[in-house]
């Protein structure tokens, strides 16, 4: 209960913080508009030349883009700001301000995962939902409640995977200070703009099992198209549990290392 209240406090702080910058609002709108135009434009140009990309139609590729934007927006809403504050450039591990965090009387993993929010990705979430809706309306299959439910489940798995990966990468900063591995994540995620199955086989394997962009973006889109196999969802869920456990373990080991309990 106290942890829920805390969540509200952090979100409120983010909104108050945002009101400090007014020009930012215009720029963020422009930025959202541009990335939307770029994403849709890129697909439009691509499908002018061909009507099938390794078995993906235009509407289906658009759905992938929508899911990509949605996942990215949720990431930008809380996961990325919080974890960058921990292990990013000028983050607490680098400045040593983590000393203060370590002395806060609450679960450290919870605290570092949810304390920083950014308001503008809410707009991105709305836009991405619009893109997904449009893409689905262009498809032949109609949407049932069951499909929608499965889609939500696959999204939860996707975000769980993303969070675990981000936590894993930011915990690395405890061991090798000054390497900003967190940055790589944003770049790798870009591969999710297009269906993973259009990439050459070795790239596809890496994007499924090492950096599971496939599970994070392509699978939810496939669920919408009613093309996903239950086995895929189950595999994604299992991978999420493994990664989450590994990330939590590494984070807590890192805390002990920070406090000098082990080497």
């Amino acid at each position: 209960m106290r942890y829920l209240r805390l969540l509200g406090t952090f979100i409120r702080a983010a909104i108050q913080n945002e009101s400090a910058y007014r020009l930012n609002a215009v720029m963020r709108l422009l930025s959202t508009g541009l990335s939307l135009a770029g994403g849709i434009g890129g697909i439009a140009v691509l499908f002018q030349a061909t009507d099938n990309l390794n078995g993906w139609s235009k509407a289906e590729t658009l759905a992938v883009l929508g899911v990509y934007m949605l996942v990215l927006a949720v990431n930008g809403l809380v996961i990325s700001p919080s974890l960058h504050k921990l292990g990013g450039m000028g983050g607490e591990i680098e400045t040593g301000n983590f000393d203060y965090t370590l002395l806060k009387p609450l679960s450290k993993q919870y605290y570092i995962s949810v304390r920083e929010w950014s308001v503008w990705p809410l707009l991105d979430i709305a836009v991405s939902l619009g893109v997904i809706g449009f893409a689905v309306s262009q498809m032949e299959a109609s949407l049932t409640a069951a499909v929608l439910g499965m889609f939500l489940v696959s999204l939860v798995i996707a975000l769980g995977l993303l969070y675990s990966l981000m936590l894993l990468l930011s915990s690395v900063a405890f061991w090798y200070r000054g390497t900003y591995v967190l940055w790589i994540m944003g770049d790798v995620l870009q591969t999710g703009k297009y269906p993973v199955s259009i990439y050459p086989r070795p790239v596809k394997l890496v994007l499924t099992w090492v950096f599971p962009v496939g599970f994070i973006v392509s699978t939810p889109a496939e669920v919408l198209m009613q093309r996903a196999e239950p086995v895929t969802l189950a595999a994604g869920f299992l991978l999420m549990l493994v990664l989450f456990a590994a990330a939590s373990l590494l984070f807590n080991r890192s805390l002990r290392k920070y406090a000098g309990a082990s080497s």
């Binding site: 106290r2 209240r5 805390l6 406090t9 952090f10 409120r12 702080a13 108050q16 913080n17 400090a20 400045t95 040593g96 301000n97 000393d99 203060y100 002395l103 806060k104 009387p105 609450l106 605290y111």
Partner: peptide
């Protein structure tokens, strides 16, 4: 409580009151 002269806990863009309020919630 620990106060380190070379480290800051203030939140740059928030008011002092808002930062105090966040601390109220963190410390329950």
């Amino acid at each position: 409580s620990m106060l380190m002269g070379n480290r800051s806990q203030l939140q740059w863009n928030n008011t002092v009151y808002d930062t105090l309020y966040i601390f109220k919630e963190i410390y329950g």
